[in-house]
Simulated scan of single mutants.
Amino acid sequence: MPSPIPVSRLLPRDVYLSVDLGTCSSPLTKFSHGSSLQVPAQRLYDKVSSRHWSAVIHWEQLRAVEPVGSGGFGSVYKAEYFGETVALKKVKKCTKNKLASWQSFWAELNAAHLRHANIVRVIAATTGVPEVFGDESSIGTILMEFVGSRSLQQLIYGDAEQLAEDRWLRYSSDIAHGLSFLHAHRIVHLDIKPANVLVSSEDVCKIADFGCSLKLDGTCEVSATSPRMSHVCGTYTHRAPELLKGEAVSPKADIFAFGITLWQLLTREPPYSGDRQHVLYAVVAHNLRPSIQQHHVFRSERGRLCGTLLGRCWAGEARCRPSAQELLPHLEQLSALT
């Protein structure tokens, strides 16, 4: 079993500093009727809309659990919790690398204490699952706000509806605002791509799926040799060159992935074709990037400016890329063009 994770790693500072948490040998310990983590009693029955996430799930309050989707990470369900619609995510156990599975589960909670309009909000999470809700392949459960079943991936590739300029600009601004907030709290997502951006019924984009994320130290970088890097996965088409080369991780890795995602919004095409290993090699050795010249969308004044911004986002050197905060005025400038 992995070493115990300190409670300060899991709960917001304004919660854990004032609380007597009692004995807790490891937050990874399983119990049959709830979480081994403990939180203040007055917080156990906070409403779903509470500012803080809870380390206890009140299973008796779950109703109408319906499957929404599944993948390598596990399964997602739509449910009711204290009368409100939520998303229930059961995180899957990887039999080949159990430590990586646990690290990925806890990485999902890196942003759990944060609240932002463009980030999917975590409501509660636990490693203890009653038999009626659990199964042997699940290592934990996370309750989140229910954004909907549409992802940016589905809108780009699966829907016939138009993605007009004002719409993709709004979507890209939503993602940039979410990243700016995460990076201000020293959290790097490390798997930004259309499939991990959900679109709400109000047509607002929210960043989801933090299983590859990292909480950075004060240096705003994590060495590639750090034990915390063992669970980092991500999607090869959106991985920054420095990650492919095993160099230090910084928020600029998310900016590279944002650039690829923005290109997909504009063109509605896959960023690369061909063999995976060839793409990985070419991105590092030959500066391979998605094509701009072949698409008419980049021929207008707005398109040319957007192409220039993309070139900065997916620069080979991380230090040459803009920060998420620096992206925002550029996107505003693009929106102002008529």
Rank of each mutant, 00 (worst) to 15 (best):
D191M: 08
H189L: 05
C220T: 01
S180L: 09
T95P: 02
E161C: 15
T141R: 08
I123G: 08
L198Y: 07
A176G: 06
Q103N: 14
L182P: 03
F105H: 00
H183F: 00
V132N: 10
G211W: 02
L163D: 01
D166T: 14
R150N: 12
R170Q: 14
C220D: 02
S213G: 03
I142M: 05
V188H: 07
Y157P: 11
F105M: 00
T85Q: 11
T141I: 15
W168C: 04
R121D: 14
A176M: 10
K93Q: 11
T126C: 09
I156F: 04
F105N: 01
D191C: 08
A195D: 14
S226M: 06
S200M: 03
V132W: 06
K215R: 11
L155I: 08
W168S: 03
K215L: 10
I192E: 00
F133Q: 02
D209A: 05
S137K: 15
S173R: 10
R167H: 10
S151Q: 13
L214Y: 02
H189Y: 05
E161L: 15
D166L: 10
A111Q: 11
S201Q: 01
I187Y: 05
G128D: 12
T95E: 09
T127K: 06
S201V: 03
N110I: 02
D174E: 12
R170G: 08
S213M: 04
I207P: 03
A112Q: 07
S201W: 01
K92Y: 04
R150Y: 14
Y81I: 10
A176L: 00
N110M: 02
L143D: 06
M144I: 10
I139C: 12
V188T: 10
A224W: 01
K89Y: 04
H177Q: 04
A111S: 10
I175G: 08
S101E: 01
G134L: 12
A87N: 07
K193P: 04
A124W: 09
Y171L: 14
D159K: 14
V197T: 09
Q154G: 11
R121L: 12
V129M: 04
L109I: 04
V199H: 04
I156P: 04
C94I: 09
V122C: 15
F133L: 14
S138I: 13
